[in-house]
């Protein structure tokens, strides 16, 4: 704009002013302020959200945190043994399912995509498939879980029959009962849900490994697997770890697929200790379940008839947020730390 008025008498002073930023750049400042406001409002929303949840849950957290931690689903909010233990246990096992199923498969798939996959149509299809899976709404995964594990298909029936035959030989009863929502169904559904996230983040971490590292290892006669094992994976480990932590946090906070699969919101009786024997340990996977987000949803719905459930839901949210934010923060800190170290 300044250039447009060349020939004006005071052009020299205007150019000088522009260069030295004298005078007020009202529009520039306004623009900058608007942008900062966008970020500021986002921050403010987060703060309000945290304060709101904390104040709602405060009475429960301060008065009876111990009982709340060890309590169970109850019909009345005034019940002393109202609490989240069943949600915690359910979410814990879901996290274990995710760690056992999604992490190895996801990381291995990422290794294949980045290290092995030839450049052909099949690889590009694979790439597209993974990316699109990551964008599928979580509730659709719930439909998949409902279809596969609860309603049962030929494949799942075959699998369940095998497991049950084995279990029958040992304990004389069926382990898995189809047509019923189980911790197994919920855990596998969420493992499937976060798989694409694990693959994408792990693939990114592997892609960031410098080519020279690989070449160095090949140079001394290492095979492909040895290169991956000794150079690529160790270098990519922090990035992969970040991705897995984010995936874990996502799985722990996810409710929609579990609602579809049929997590219990009514009453779930307290069970025997699952560590009393192998049968109880595996038996719980074939049992009805609930999880932290489901507990919260159930209580929010109950608050329509019994107002005391509102604060209980708030307190449960605080507990859930503590877990999720800790996992996320560790992930972010890890990533920043390694970025800085390498950058």
């Amino acid at each position: 704009m300044a250039l447009g008025t060349i020939g004006d008498q005071d052009v020299a002073s205007r150019v000088e002013a522009t260069i030295q930023r004298r005078g007020r750049d009202v529009r520039g400042t306004g623009f900058r302020f608007a942008l900062f406001a966008a970020l500021g409002i986002s921050t403010l929303i987060l703060v309000i959200l945290l304060v709101d949840v904390l104040t709602d849950g405060w009475p429960v957290l301060t008065d009876r945190l111990g009982d709340f931690w060890s309590g169970t689903l109850r019909s009345r909010s005034s019940d002393d043994s109202l609490g989240i233990s069943q949600g915690i246990v359910g979410s814990f096992w879901i996290a274990v399912f995710v760690a056992v199923l999604a992490f190895p498969i996801g990381i291995a798939a990422a290794v294949y995509l980045e290290e092995y996959a030839p450049r052909n149509w099949f690889t590009s299809v694979l790439d597209i498939v993974v990316r699109n899976l990551a964008g599928v709404p979580s509730v659709v995964y719930g439909l998949l879980g409902l279809f596969l594990f609860v309603k049962g298909t030929a494949v799942t029936n075959w699998f369940v029959d095998r497991v049950n035959n084995r279990w029958n030989a040992w304990y004389g009863e069926d382990l898995i009962e189809l047509g019923q929502s189980t911790l197994f169904a919920g855990g596998v559904t969420l493992a499937v849900l976060v798989l694409p996230i694990v693959i994408i983040t792990a693939a990114e971490a592997i892609r960031a490994v410098p080519q020279s590292l690989r070449e160095g290892a090949y140079g001394v006669g290492a095979t492909k697997w040895e290169v991956i094992k000794s150079q690529v994976l160790p270098f990519a480990a922090p990035g992969i770890l970040t991705g897995t932590l984010l995936a874990l946090a996502r799985a722990v906070g996810e409710a929609a697929p579990l609602i579809l699969v049929g997590a219990i919101t009514g009453r779930l009786a307290p069970r025997d200790s699952m560590f009393s024997g192998l049968e109880d340990f595996f038996g719980q996977f074939a049992d009805r379940f609930t999880a932290m987000p489901i507990v919260i949803v159930g209580w929010v719905q109950n608050s329509g008839r019994d107002e005391g459930f509102g604060p209980a839901a708030g307190a449960a949210i605080v507990v859930l947020l503590v877990f999720v934010i800790i996992m996320n923060s560790i992930a972010v800190l890890l990533r920043n730390y390694f970025e800085k170290k390498r950058g």
């Binding site: 949840v53 984010l246 996502r250 996810e254 409710a255 929010v300 949210i317 859930l320 999720v324 934010i325």
Partner: peptide
């Protein structure tokens, strides 16, 4: 990272 149930409550 905030779970959607938390936003639902909020």
């Amino acid at each position: 990272g905030v779970p959607s149930v938390v936003l639902g409550f909020f």
